[in-house]
Design a protein around this nucleic acid. Structure first.
Lengths: 221, 221
DNA sequence: ACGCACCTGGACCCACGGGTGGAACCGAGG
DNA sequence: CCTCGGTTCCACCCGTGGGTCCAGGTGCGT
């Protein structure tokens, strides 16, 4: 996580973008930062993989929209086969799906293309050090999805519920009538009723509708 | 988002931590970075606010656990009253609640205390530039909550459902029996049954348990 | 004025759900 | 050994739920 003092070696960076008009000036301008060395350029995801195989690399600056193999897939493979290589995404698109997909694939940074040279350089240094740099809007989006989707605290059931009862509750949560539950578990409907009544007593469930809600709330459905 | 060339002025930073044994060495070591100037130190949140009022500040390095006013509350007020000031959290705790609370309050970075001097300095520079730096584990946690909480696509109901029917469905989703629904809506139980039967026909709902699931899935409960 | 959608209500029937009590089997544990 | 918890089943009762048909009242747009 930390750099003992500071300058170890120049950071070896690969620039990946299918548009030469973006890739080449970017590589050139990054080389101006004294601590960054662009060791290769790639026009698609597979070129990134071969380039990484060619020699030691610290950071890949990755576009998402590329032919042959896109940036998401390239990131996924890269972080699997070479976890020591950090990936920083640099793209024009900052929609929720792209952000989640890229970070899930293992990217350690996400910048939009209105980031300046220093912003990019800083993200590269951070990624090499194990940190993660996000554009402000990207962080806001990620935070928003993390927050809005949070109100399902997975409230638990009493501990004295038997495995069989849990099975029955799950099927209730899927909306099945007792007869269907009985068939699915190869038991009689009477037995299903017994389990249900035990459930009601143990878990303070009033009726079937309540059971459905509890099953969903407990994550069984 | 970008810095035109580079050195504008030294970044004015406030260090906030209730433990002097942490605060003072931290302030001292940060001053060693040529582009960072520690202009004040604070032992709690309210001291941060008064210090910010005293003069121009770029970044506040904020601990979360502090007496009088904690880092969350201080961050919230700071980003409201002085949105131009960036807050970077530096704390030992990296649990989901703390992370979400701090970032929701407006923090533009979140580091744990095993971050090194360069890591912290980089986060400060990024925050001043409008970016956000997260520790690796922090990003992973934030991403995990954003992902796991996503599988509720809010599947909609048919369009020809009347307002009254929607009301009834909501109450069904809360587990109420017909009689209770009738009382709550000041109508007879017979009317409730009618609405329910219409719902079943329109929305392809089989029975009451199914209705509960649909109501929850539609976000009515 | 007329049709139409919606909300309202009543009547009937019966299947399913839910409550109670009892009973048998089996495996783990004292 | 025999108890105990879990699972399996039966019988009985009845309340609620769910299906069907019908019908009055209101407000809206043509």
């Amino acid at each position: 996580m930390s750099e003992p003092t500071q300058n170890e070696q120049r950071l070896k960076v690969i620039v990946a973008d299918d548009q030469a008009a973006v890739r080449e000036p970017l590589a050139a301008v990054l080389g101006l930062s004294g601590d960054i060395e662009v060791v290769a350029a790639a026009a698609d995801g597979s070129q990134v993989l071969t380039a990484v195989a060619g020699g030691p690399v610290d950071v890949v600056l990755m576009d998402l929209r590329m032919p042959v193999m896109d940036g998401i897939e390239a990131t996924r493979r890269l972080t699997e086969e070479h976890p020591e290589v950090a990936v920083v995404v640099l793209t024009t698109f900052a929609d929720d799906d792209s952000i989640l997909a890229a970070l899930s694939a293992g990217a350690r940074g996400y910048l939009t293309k209105n980031a300046g040279r220093e912003d990019i350089a800083r993200a590269i240094r951070a990624a090499a050090a194990g940190q993660s740099v996000l554009d402000r809007e990207v962080q806001d989006r990620l935070l928003a999805t993390a927050r809005t989707k949070a109100p399902t605290p997975q409230q638990p059931l009493p501990g004295d519920i038997t495995p069989r009862e849990r099975e029955v509750l799950t099927l209730i949560g899927q909306g099945l009538p007792n007869r269907a539950i009985a068939e699915k578990l190869f038991i009689s409907e009477a037995t299903v009723k017994t389990h249900i009544n035990n459930l009601f007593a143990k878990a303070d469930i009033r009726d079937r509708a309540d059971a459905v809600r509890r099953a969903i709330a407990a994550g069984l459905a």
